[in-house]
Amino acid sequence: MTEAIKIETGQGYWAPLIFVVALLGVLILAVLIWSRGRREYKRGTEQELPFLSGEKVENPRVGALHLYWGLAEALRPLLERLRGWHSGNINEYAGWFLVILAVVVLLVLA
């Protein structure tokens, strides 16, 4: 039975059911703390509106590209280069295949 619930990883083991029990414990604790919180939240008032730098925005919507915007912005030079690499030109794709083939031939024959 013990084999069925855990997997050996060489240096230890991973037992998801124990993890789930621990996770439930933490969740219960979180709910307890949350239930002792302040009860001023009112539905249907302007408390429901998202806080966007204190400004009122018509029809606020946080799209996919707004999330992790900073990360994507910081990585922009890298991402642009990678996008340029995926150029869509079939000649380049075939060229990369030849490059890999050459590398493999050199590695294997050496």
């Binding site: 029809n59 606020p60 919507r61 946080v62 799209g63 996919a64 999330l67 992790y68």
Partner: peptide
Amino acid sequence: ARAFQGAFLGP
């Protein structure tokens, strides 16, 4: 997380 937010969350 981005994809989930973009497709499923929101008004």
